[in-house]
């Protein structure tokens, strides 16, 4: 990890949108959640961060967006840089103004507002006159939101997810962090949401860091992937490499070529954990 980061720096320092370097996160001053996580997201890339429940994926995202500070968490070691400038000690609202926007897990739209009010809220950090045009732009990606004039709390799960992504677009971010956009959605909607994420990445050039449980879908649309276990990155590679990796197939995609013996499985886990 460390070597690749250094090598990357020399050849294309300006191409890195987000660089997380060896961060350690502690909750409530005692619980160590992340133990030296490093990752890099190139400009315009769609990078996914995979892992099981409790691996620390959401914590990593919150550390990057600064929202960790609102839940008694703290980055105790390491650095986080956005476009080469350190952001690890900034307040979350300042980080949003720098162009990094997190779509939190579970949508978190404002339920007692209409979809349009939610979208206008997304543009809170802006003061230009193009907000109305951007609302229309969001509606062009999510036409079904336009028909919904009631409170956002009454939208279906999929519509809420679309609204959450639309709200993020309103801030015109350079880098969007998406925390489990597929959570609680039907397979059909998951396909739709992922297709839109990929489209936004290509059309608008928004760099994306996507945290997912649904490894298959995530690897299908991402360029690069990191795999996390127990607060550490254990594997990284291009999406194609990861999809073809036997271990990834076994543990994250389900149904590898043939079942490994129980003995091998244990040693694999031990090796990975105490690496």
């Amino acid at each position: 990890m460390a070597q690749t980061a250094v090598a990357g720096e020399t050849e294309a320092a300006t191409q890195v949108a987000l660089a997380v370097n060896n961060i350690e996160v502690v909750y409530d001053e005692v619980i160590l959640v992340l133990r030296g996580v490093s990752l890099e997201v190139g400009k315009g890339a769609l990078v996914t961060l995979l892992g099981a429940n409790g691996a620390g994926k959401s914590t990593a995202l919150k550390a990057i967006s600064g929202l960790l500070k609102t839940e008694d968490g703290e980055v105790t070691r390491g650095t986080i840089a956005l476009n080469g400038e350190r952001i690890d000690h900034l307040a979350p609202e300042t980080i949003v103004r720098r162009g990094l926007f997190q779509v939190m897990e579970g949508r978190r739209i404002v339920e007692d507002m209409t979809p349009i009010e939610n979208l206008r809220l997304g543009a809170y950090t802006r003061r230009d006159s193009e907000i109305g045009a951007d609302i229309e732009m969001v509606f062009s990606y999510f036409p079904r939101l336009k028909e919904r004039t009631g409170l956002a709390g009454y939208l279906s799960g999929g519509e809420q997810q679309m609204l959450a992504i639309g709200r993020a677009l309103m801030a015109r971010p350079q880098l969007m962090l998406l925390d489990e956009p597929s959570m609680g959605l039907s397979p059909l909607l998951v396909n739709e949401v992922f297709a839109i994420i990929r489209q936004l990445n290509r059309d608008l050039g928004i760099t994306m860091l996507l945290v997912e449980q649904n490894a298959r879908m995530a690897l299908r649309c991402a360029d690069y992937g990191y795999i996390m276990e127990s607060g550490k990155i254990v594997l990284d590679g291009s999406a194609a490499e990861l999809s073809n990796n036997e271990d990834v197939k076994e543990f994250y995609l389900g149904g590898g070529e043939q079942r490994k013996s129980f003995k091998n499985l244990k040693s694999y886990k031990r090796r990975k954990r105490w690496l």
Binding site: T70, E71, A91, P92, E93, R97, Q102, V110, M113, Y124
Partner: peptide, 16 residues
């Protein structure tokens, strides 16, 4: 209103 709804959500939108 966003702050009243949820402070963390408000902060994630860039509201102080």
């Amino acid at each position: 209103r966003a702050t009243a709804f949820n402070q963390q959500v408000a902060q994630s939108l860039g509201i102080s």
